[in-house]
Design a protein around this nucleic acid. Structure first.
Lengths: 224, 224
DNA sequence: GTAGATTCTAAAGATAATTTAAAGATTTTA
DNA sequence: TAAAATCTTTAAATTATCTTTAGAATCTAC
């Protein structure tokens, strides 16, 4: 997921970024009002983590801009102030969730995930990528509206690809996400080739079209 | 990227090295305080992975040396101790991130990547040099907004050039960064000519414009 | 506990990248 | 200016990485 972190406190900014990056997101940061405004105008984000106490301008002002421009983006507000009015004002203006300093990064992360589930996929549990559609609650996958049957590894791999689209994923990173713990100990990741091959076959044309080989560095899931 | 692993536990040392190597980095190792100190004095690294519990001397001492000598290098500390004071002391002394044993290698790797991005290129995953644009997460390179395909060596070489722009880079230095340790065993660096040539061709006009030959001493990446 | 599905291993074949080699061009040195 | 050193360029040899298949090992559901 592509996330903008609008936060002026450098230490917090970088620890949020580190945490969210590690979770497979693509983060950018903005340290002040103008930078945030600019980046929002230029790029599309899935989520904006917005500190409403940005020093050079009100974070709430950014929220107004987003909503005025009809941007379809989830907004999670960070505030130092836990007063109820603040909270209501933020949510009223269209924020999707609200978190008060200090907080655990894991909590911020799970709220982001919840916002994404609720908002991005229209409250539904469907993820789409061109002709591929995934229903996350029933774990069914459709290619051009025809259901295909994926094994657990193939399904996990597909979701990992879709949620990291555009990024080159090394075999090590893939192994870490799909096999966890003991993947460190593995001395070869050759079996990933087999899963890639199987997933490509099951996705038919879409597999070849979207799962690109980055020779020597990994795989990339991308359209075109 | 060129990475020094200062870790005395042999098993961990070698698994870190294997993992980071496989991810396309060039790693060297130091097993004790003196070896680390020596290598840091002699070579330039992009990242030092530093175990603060090195047996023959405090790892934090090395951190002090690095900072005293103004070395521009990212430091990721490994510690067996997760106490807050330890962590703060490390970060206070100038470490860029901190990780507690035991950890997943992929996690260490993504922290290293985050440190590199934050430090060198201001947090963004896009590096620009005139009409050349590199997206480090998708590993794509654009020349005048048209994507070009680079092999791993060409990509590494380009990034090495961009991050050392203006400096004359000898073939020895280039070899050391792209081929690592055993590069000093090589008796000729002629293959670098080939990679330079290939990269220049793929960068089209920009290649000729920016990769300047410094006859007898190396190459320099610069826009006149 | 067994049958069937899934995952992993192994290996051959295909493809792509890297290095070697060598001929020709350019720059420096004497 | 001629010789020596260094660099450019191309093609071929070598090596690395990826694809694909088949079957063995493992897991799962009944």
């Amino acid at each position: 997921m592509k996330i903008l972190i609008a936060e002026d406190e450098k230490a917090l900014q970088s620890s949020i970024q580190t945490y969210l990056d590690r979770d497979g997101n693509v983060c950018e940061v903005a340290s002040d009002f103008y930078e945030a405004q600019q980046k929002i105008a230029l790029y599309d984000y899935d989520i904006i983590v917005l500190d409403v106490n940005l020093d050079t301008g009100s974070g709430l002002e950014i929220l107004r801009i987003i909503k005025k421009e009809q941007k379809k983006v989830g907004v999670v507000i960070i505030s130092a102030n836990s007063s109820l009015e603040d909270k209501l004002e933020g949510l009223d203006l269209g924020a999707d969730d609200y978190i008060t300093k200090p907080f655990h990064l894991a909590e911020l992360n799970s709220r982001i995930k919840a916002v994404l589930r609720r908002g991005k996929f229209g409250g539904s549990d469907t993820i789409e990528f061109h002709e591929i559609r995934v229903n996350t609650s029933s774990r069914t996958v459709y290619v051009e509206d025809k259901a295909i049957t994926l094994t657990r590894k193939e399904y996990d791999l597909l979701l990992f690809f879709i949620s990291n689209q555009g990024r080159v994923l090394s075999k090590g990173i893939i192994a870490e996400h799909l096999w966890g713990d003991n993947s460190d100990l593995l001395d070869n990741f050759d079996f990933i080739y087999v899963h890639i091959n199987n997933l490509r076959k099951k996705l038919k044309g879409a597999g070849a079209r979207y799962i690109k080989t980055a020779y020597g560095s990994g795989y990339k899931f991308i359209a075109e």
